[in-house]
Each structure stands twice: as structure tokens, then as C-alpha cells.
Design a protein around this nucleic acid. Structure first.
Lengths: 211, 211
DNA sequence: CGTTCTGATGTCAGTCACAGACATCACGAT
DNA sequence: ATCGTGATGTCTGTGACTGACATCAGAACG
């Protein structure tokens, strides 16, 4: 007979998402999550540095995919092309089957400012790491940071759209379009007589719900 | 005889910054801050929704400046020009005299992840508000959000540079240069045979310390 | 001028996030 | 058979934050 059921961390994560989605994040205590899978509060905090982290733990692979995308770009690629490569690589971490899960998770995050803060912090960390990878390629400052943060922004916007009800395009496709839109935006930097801003999406509703 | 010394909130903010800078954020309790200005913990939390907020309260004017900059742009301005206007307006909130204060405040923030999270959240809120203002000007999605987030990114990078030891340019000047660098970055989207990334700053060190 | 109202504060008690110290005990290694 | 070892439980404490209620100087009012 085994002393402990295996996969404590994963069970905690699943239970947490479930409870957060039903009762809400603040209305769920860490002790409740732990007890719901037969563990104690103390064990919960041994697996996750804080209550929010249960929703964010384990994203190193995603970050790695982003960086891998940077490294996979040809050595003579422009910063923008490097970012495009990184976005493509990162998008592969979100196949369409994962959409329902991502939607549920994101809806929990969108309902709680504390979780939004953590998400932004993780995204900022991603940008920092990517910027470092860009600098390693010889890209200077502020270009490296600018490119990295832009990449993170594009990813964030694309992800938010990918999650949207009714959206069926792949994350990669959406990210590509958003990136092109960014180029369009900064590229059409004339005296305002350029073409009107293209409407990529049907609705004019805001992209990011929170904050 | 007055019952209470006036300016409780401001006194709390000043004391908090002072204590955070010396003892550190986590090593300072809300009760200590309150007692250091003759108040109680309960009163501290009546003025600030949480301990971190004492460093961030009162930025509505800054946000307003950003939005005013958006509204001040001519109606036929491109999104990028609108952002440039907003950046200029926002930068006016940080005259050179304020640099030492901003530096001290930022050094506290840079030393604590929880404070960085709050800062990012505020910046994201700024972007959301600016995006709304852009949509009100008839700019569609995702252009509005993209432009707003890019503006926030540029501001963040410029601010970080403005704070740097040895930097003497005005925030407005720096922001203008960073924005131009962004255009340069996305505009030079060729096959990599363009000019090498310009080195605006002497050092290649990372821009954002935290995360 | 006395009364009433109000707003900023204090007091008290409670919940919950989190952390340190120590005990437990199945299991694998020796 | 013994000995670690690692994941867990137990206990206890601190500090962030909240609700309920009391206080009281000064402003408003009759």
C-alpha cells in the first residue's frame, strides 16, 4: 500500500482551478483546496510559494519555447523576424485542444486583480528573458528590450483573442496577424493620410478585460 | 487644539517610503508605518486598500495626463502620433527635480517582486484606459490596444532610463528617442540586410531590473 | 447658545495567508 | 535488520486585512 497518492501537485492544481472557478479565488482558502484532495494546508504551501502560484506553476516550458524560437531564428534575422520566430514557437504550446482549458483558466484570472498582477509579472519575466536572448544575439539596447516587450504584448493580445468565444483561428495565425498589425501601425507613421486602421476583428470591444 | 494632525495620508506615504527604503518592504509592518506618524494600523488600511498601495496611491493625475495627451492630438493624427502626444504629455509629469524622488521610489520597487506586480498592474491599467481613448477616436482593434500597450512599453523603458544614474536627458527626450527606436525596429522589417541596430545608450545592460 | 450630525480616528476581535520547527513513517539502500 | 530519505502532518506564530462598534472635535443647525 502506498503511503501517499502520487501527483500531489497536479491534484492540487486541478482542484484549485475547479474551486476558483466555482466559488471564486478569494472565497477559496488554501486549506480547502488541500483538504479537497486529502492534503493539508502546510503541504499546499510546500508545493506553491503562494496561493496564486497554484495557477501559474509549471510555465517554464512555455518560456523555454519562446526562447527556443529566438535561438531558432537565422543569425542574420532582424529583431522583428526573431520575435516572429519566437511567437510561432510559443504558439505551438497552445494547440486548439487546449483552448477550453485556457479559456476556463483565463476567466478565473480575469475575475481577480491579484491573479492579473501575477500574470503580468510572469509576462514581464518572459520579456526580460527574451530580451536577454536578443542581447546575446548582438542586439543592443533599447532595441532588445523594446522588441522583447513588443513580442510579449503581441502574444498577450493574440492569446486574449484566441481565447475569445467564437474564435477558431490558431494562436499562431492570430499572433502572426497581430504582429503584422503592429508593423502596420508603426510603419504607417506618416501625417495621418495613410489608410484607415484595418479592422482585423469584427468587434471593437476591448481586448484585455481586467485592470 | 486640533484633534488630528492634517495630511494623514501624505504623512503615511512619506513614512512608508522612508521605512521601505531603509528596512525593506517586507521587513516593515503596516503597524510600524502608522505608529511612526502617530496613527494606528487600522487607520493605515482605511487610507490604503493594501500595504503596497501606499506607494502607488495618487497616480490618477498621471493617468489623466496620458489621456489628455491622447485627446490633444489632432483628429487626423495616426495612432503613433497620438501615442507620441500622450507620451509627451505624460512626461511633463516628471520634471527633472523629481528625478531623485523617482529614483528612490523605484529602487524600493525594484527590490520587491510584490511591488513590481503592482506597478505592472497599474501600467496595464494605463494601457487599458489609453486603448479606450484611442477607440473613442475611431481606432479599431487590435490597433488601439496594440498602440496603447506599445505606448506603455515605451514609457516604461524611457522611465527606467530616465532614472538611471548618470542620465541627464529629460524624460520627454528619452521617450521620443525610444519611440523612434520602436518605429525603426518594426519599420526595418526587411530580410536582415538593413543597418545594424543603433546603439542609443552606451551600455548593453538590461533595462528593467526586476522580474 | 445648546443640540445634532459628521467624519476621521481608535479599539477589539476575528479570518486567512504563510513560515519555522519538529515529528512521522513507508520505502529504498546498505 | 538497520538506516536514511523525502513527502507529509502537527503545532504555533506573525502579519495583512476586515467588520463592528466607540469616541469626540468641530461644523451645521435651530
Amino acid at each position: 500500500m502506498v503511503r501517499w497518492e502520487p501527483g500531489a501537485r497536479e491534484r492540487l492544481q486541478a482542484a484549485a482551478l475547479e474551486l476558483f472557478a466555482t466559488r471564486g479565488f478569494e472565497q477559496t482558502t488554501a486549506a480547502e483546496i488541500a483538504e479537497s484532495v486529502g492534503l493539508t494546508e502546510r503541504t499546499f504551501f510546500r508545493h506553491f510559494s503562494d496561493k496564486r502560484e497554484v495557477l501559474f506553476y509549471g510555465q517554464e516550458q512555455f518560456l523555454q519555447a519562446f526562447v527556443d524560437g529566438v535561438d531558432a531564428a537565422p543569425p542574420d534575422a532582424s529583431p522583428l523576424e526573431v520575435i516572429a520566430s519566437a511567437l510561432d514557437s510559443a504558439a505551438s504550446f497552445f494547440p486548439d485542444e487546449r483552448r477550453p482549458y485556457s479559456r476556463m483558466r483565463q476567466s478565473v484570472i480575469d475575475r481577480n486583480p491579484a491573479l492579473q498582477e501575477r500574470e503580468l509579472h510572469k509576462l514581464a519575466g518572459l520579456a526580460t528573458t527574451v530580451a536577454e536572448a536578443l542581447r546575446a544575439r548582438g542586439i543592443g539596447e533599447p532595441a532588445a528590450t523594446l522588441a522583447a516587450e513588443s513580442g510579449a504584448t503581441v502574444f498577450g493580445i493574440a492569446f486574449a483573442q484566441w481565447i475569445r468565444e467564437g474564435e477558431s483561428r490558431s494562436l499562431s495565425d492570430i499572433a502572426g496577424q497581430v504582429l503584422r498589425e503592429l508593423v502596420n501601425l508603426t510603419g504607417a507613421a506618416r501625417t495621418g493620410d495613410g489608410p484607415p486602421a484595418s479592422r482585423v476583428w469584427s468587434q471593437g470591444a476591448p481586448i484585455r478585460p481586467g485592470t
